[in-house]
């Protein structure tokens, strides 16, 4: 590990100023991702600015019926918060499906959103990786890519975003409140992460020195919701595929819905094709299958993750059947 200076931020503006002034400075929150990266050599900052002591862990109701979550709120506290459990059970379920009790006690809302990919090549500084070293190549294209993307990837990078919480936040239409050197602005969580394109070094649209100070949820979407996570073991494992779903049925038709897939792309993946196919439709087995197929039409499997395409399809089908009370039908062709 390279030596670095450590500084405890007095307040948010001074934390932003300190990081913005030094291109090699980073924010530290719970440290469960950053400290791991310091040890691996994936991160080698000159200055670590600790924002974990800032009093930004309040969860408060907003006048419009929404909720404001301070960026320092720990994952465990957020998942157990009575208002979150009652009004946004999707968020609570997603948080509780992630990591372990010990990690959730430390991990923060801001840090969780900005955690980096678990791609094994990214985490190993002895091998090339375009995300770590631009232009060095992407060994995952032909190597171990079981956990990698099937949607929205590029030749430069096929990594996935690992956060369960972010997947649920996109489905809840959450907004990140960001403090930068030029003041505060709002970034929809659905637009926070970016596809790799030809610059996989950038995970998000944030600039160096931008500090997430809060996440705001609009008034509850209503209807029924579910977070389904499919993984290699029953607990304490990252998602192979996950789905955050919320569905509102009225008078026998799907009035509105939100479908966001996790583990399939460089961002939480808003399944807009499937949503569009089902909005205003009667929930039938045929309609659900057509919607899932429409979403996965553009899916591109790598050498080791073709199983993710039917896995994502089945996650969509089983959750949507549950949420719309359709009995599953045996598929002849599946």
């Amino acid at each position: 590990m390279r030596p670095f200076a450590y500084q405890r931020a007095a307040d948010a503006p001074s934390a932003v100023a300190a990081v913005a002034a030094d291109p090699r400075a980073v924010f530290l929150a719970g440290g469960t991702n950053l400290v791991d990266h310091l040890k691996l050599g994936v991160a080698a900052p000159s200055l670590v600015v600790d924002v974990s002591g800032l009093a930004v862990d309040e969860v408060e109701e907003l006048p419009d019926g929404g909720l404001r979550i301070g960026a320092g709120t720990r994952n465990s506290d957020l998942a157990a918060h009575p208002l979150v459990r009652e009004r946004y059970p999707l968020l609570s379920e997603a948080l509780l499906s992630g990591a372990s009790g010990q990690l959730r006690n430390v991990a923060t809302t801001g840090g969780n959103l900005l955690q980096r990919t678990r791609c094994g090549y990214f985490r190993d500084t002895t091998v090339p990786c375009n995300k770590r070293e631009p232009g060095s190549g992407c060994p995952a294209l032909t190597g171990h890519n079981r956990y990698h993307a099937i949607l929205g990837a590029s030749r430069e990078c096929v990594a996935t975003h690992p956060s369960d919480m972010a997947t649920a936040l996109v489905a809840l239409d959450a907004t990140a409140v960001v403090l930068g050197v030029d003041g505060s602005r709002r970034v929809p969580v659905g637009e926070l992460h970016r596809l790799p394109g030809d610059d996989p070094t950038r995970d998000t649209v944030l600039a160096h020195g931008d500090l997430i100070t809060a996440v705001e949820l609009p008034a509850p979407f209503g209807g029924r919701s579910r977070y389904r996570k499919v993984r290699d073991r029953a607990s304490f494992a990252f998602a192979l595929v996950s789905l955050a779903a919320a569905v509102r049925v009225r008078d026998g038709v799907i009035d509105d819905l939100r479908l966001v897939l996790g583990g399939v792309a460089h961002t939480p993946w808003r399944a807009r094709h499937a949503e569009d196919a089902l909005r205003g439709a009667a929930p039938t087995e045929g309609a659900l299958r057509a919607a899932a197929d429409a979403e996965l039409l553009d899916a591109k499997a790598l050498t080791g993750n073709a199983f993710k395409v039917p896995l994502a399809r089945n996650a969509l089908l089983s959750v949507l059947r549950d949420l719309t009370d359709i009995a599953p039908e045996l598929e002849e062709d599946a």
Partner: peptide, 22 residues
């Protein structure tokens, strides 16, 4: 690396892994 839990301690009353904090 936070993956096994053998370093778990109670910090201010809460269980945490001690290997991923400075």
């Amino acid at each position: 690396h936070g993956q096994c839990g053998s370093c778990t301690v109670l910090v201010d009353g809460r269980r945490e892994v001690s290997c991923l904090s400075l």
